[in-house]
């Protein structure tokens, strides 16, 4: 998927999942979204994303236990793509 940046942090020790996700989110270009794969619900991530004006959606993963989609607040195109992925039945 062209707009997707995939980040697998499911085998990393804290604080790497948090820092790598925030770094990857900060580098998102218009139309891009981050698909973060994790083994558990992330710690301290969502508050930081709120502060930095990102939107996110957490759902049950297919590859890992948890998947989190992250995109920029103003990015309607990325938001629509994420919504279509989440709405598509597996």
């Amino acid at each position: 998927m062209p707009g997707e940046i995939l980040l697998d942090v499911s085998e990393l020790e804290p604080p790497e999942p948090l820092t790598l996700t925030l770094e990857a989110a900060a580098s998102l270009q218009p139309g891009q979204y981050l698909r973060m794969l994790h083994r558990r619900e992330p710690c301290m991530l969502y508050g930081n994303l709120d502060e930095q004006h990102f939107k996110y959606l957490q759902c049950k993963g297919t590859v890992s236990a948890v998947e989190v989609f992250i995109w920029r607040e103003q990015d309607q195109k990325a938001a629509a793509v994420v919504q279509s992925i989440v709405d598509t039945p597996i």
């Binding site: 604080p15 820092t19 925030l22 770094e23 508050g47 930081n48 502060e51």
Partner: peptide, 11 residues
């Protein structure tokens, strides 16, 4: 690229 990390609820 730096990770913009804030303390959140951490005391």
């Amino acid at each position: 690229m730096h990770a913009g990390l804030s303390l959140q609820q951490s005391p």
